[in-house]
């Protein structure tokens, strides 16, 4: 045990981070390249298109900024509750951990519900992926991001039984910390997508 413990300590000391954290950051870095590949494709298509928004959606486009502003605020709130949940477990506040992660889960589910509402509304009004590059890139980017939010919600649902049983503490909270990194990344990506797709 002591040999294993000192080996872990040496490994941690030499890399400056736990293997779990290095793994999560590596995943996020490669995932970021996936998102950026899609964003570059969006930018190239948009710049090279003489008319980006098809005539029937002129002049303001088909997308509603008000609804997505609310979605953005919800994700920012869920990032806040996520970081508060991590702070709670670090001071062994089990009630705080459950409360803040519950709110994070609620934020994720609300975001997904609003995205389903937005997509349904757009598709019923004729704004479908094959209808234009404008629509195709919109569905690709927001769909890819929505899949990440869905993964985050499932990830948290899997963690929740252990959270309710009080299995995490100030000395054992690595899964919460790693989950937090993923969830904040999802929020960070949405911040960029909201600006690029809806505001520019």
């Amino acid at each position: 045990m002591s040999d294993t413990g000192s080996a872990h300590a040496a490994q941690r000391e030499s890399f400056g981070a736990t293997p779990g954290k290095i793994g999560m950051w590596l995943f996020l870095a490669s995932d970021a390249m996936g998102f950026m590949g899609l964003i570059i494709a969006y930018m190239v298509l948009r710049i090279a298109s003489p008319v980006w928004i098809p005539e029937q959606w002129q002049p303001d486009g088909a997308l509603a900024i008000g609804l997505t502003a609310v979605m953005t605020f919800i994700l920012i709130c869920s990032s806040m509750t996520m970081v508060l949940a991590l702070a709670a477990v670090r001071r062994d506040d089990q009630k705080g951990l459950v409360r803040y992660l519950g709110l994070t889960l609620l934020g994720g589910l609300t975001f997904l519900g609003l995205q389903v509402y937005e997509w349904t509304h757009l598709i019923h009004s004729g704004f479908t992926a094959p209808s234009s590059n404008y629509a195709a890139t919109f569905f690709s980017l927001t769909g890819f991001h929505g899949a990440h939010v869905t993964s985050g919600v499932i990830y948290l649902l899997i963690l929740f039984p252990s959270i309710l049983k009080g299995k995490f503490s100030s000395t054992n909270h690595s899964p919460i910390e790693l989950y937090g990194l993923f969830w904040h990344f999802v929020d960070l990506v949405w911040i960029i997508l909201f600006t690029i797709i809806y505001l520019i």
Partner: peptide, 30 residues
């Protein structure tokens, strides 16, 4: 979000290298 919520501000060089590498590659692509 990255610096304060993801605590990147308190990370060491290795994590910064992991974050900066894809950004440089994407910049080259752009």
């Amino acid at each position: 979000v990255a610096l304060y919520y993801m605590h990147l501000k308190q990370e060491r060089a290795l994590i910064y290298i992991l974050v900066v590498t894809p950004l440089v590659l994407v910049l080259i692509m752009i």
